[in-house]
Design a protein around this nucleic acid. Sequence first.
DNA 1: CCTTGACCTAAAGTTAGGTTTAGGTTTTAT
DNA 2: ATAAAACCTAAACCTAACTTTAGGTCAAGG
Lengths: 165, 165
Amino acid sequence: MMYTIGQVSEMFHLPISTLRYYDKEGLFPEMERQSGIRRFSEREIEALRVIECLKASGLEIRDIRQFMEWAAEGAATYGKRKELFEARKRAVEEEMARLQKTLDMLNYKCWYYETAIREGNEDRLSQMIPDGLPPEIKKLYESGHSQSPSATQQILRNSGLSPAF
Amino acid sequence: MMYTIGQVSEMFHLPISTLRYYDKEGLFPEMERQSGIRRFSEREIEALRVIECLKASGLEIRDIRQFMEWAAEGAATYGKRKELFEARKRAVEEEMARLQKTLDMLNYKCWYYETAIREGNEDRLSQMIPDGLPPEIKKLYESGHSQSPSATQQILRNSGLSPAF
DNA sequence: CCTTGACCTAAAGTTAGGTTTAGGTTTTAT
DNA sequence: ATAAAACCTAAACCTAACTTTAGGTCAAGG
């Protein structure tokens, strides 16, 4: 079964211009043409699924091209291809851990504003931070605030009236 | 406690140019200066933590500026600020779900290449897809392949020799 | 005093990942 | 046979988020 660029565009909800761009970047190294017109086979359809997966994993277009070139070389590159997928797995796992910390921070902030709205101001809140926070909330606060600076932790912990948005 | 731009740069492992860029974009609307030199207070340090959180959640700089302007307006904007954090929470949860599907696909591909390497070719694999796959692997395959096209599912399921990378 | 290191601005440059435009060819339906 | 719809290319354009550059100011130590 073969598809035109317009059919593939509808199948994947991708603009035709994007498919042409991917082709120009070498993401379909084996695609056929018929009097100049692209013919997407099942190989290219599965390639597109892999492209979306690798893109979602944070891989850049030029590295996806490299993968597609390996795939075109056949069985000799199984090892390289497997290592690539394993590296992307690690990258995605790291990204998910980062997002979990972000989510902890966001949950903390939601609690913070619920409280601020209930009380009409942040006065009591700013005195609770961080050791007077309810245990559940304190966990979120610490997870969310552990992302970047370590040097400042000590300074800010005991500074009393830290502004907190 | 006040910090210079160089100190903040080290604390957050951010280039000085980035801090100046954030300031130019209005992310520190209340920052003070002393004869032209920026003075970061604890307010700006906490602002930076929030900036990193909102950025990690996928928010653009201009919307972060909006948030910082709301914060500068005081208690009247608690509601807006809470709604922003709730919206970002939803966005991050969706992103994590998307990454989980990506991870399923990557795990499937890792299994695929382990098998291809063990067997020396993809012949048996391409006949297993999708109904002859081991149940655990089939789950990953279906999760990973449910991301984009729905129209193609039926077509590809029964096409026999689909190439699979 | 004077030099050195840290700070400042405005403006131009960079990068990734597309999208748009202009002009032309091919296929499909009447 | 012809007109509309769908395809093609090359090249210019776009956006976000920075980074670099060029030229200047400020503060501390010798």
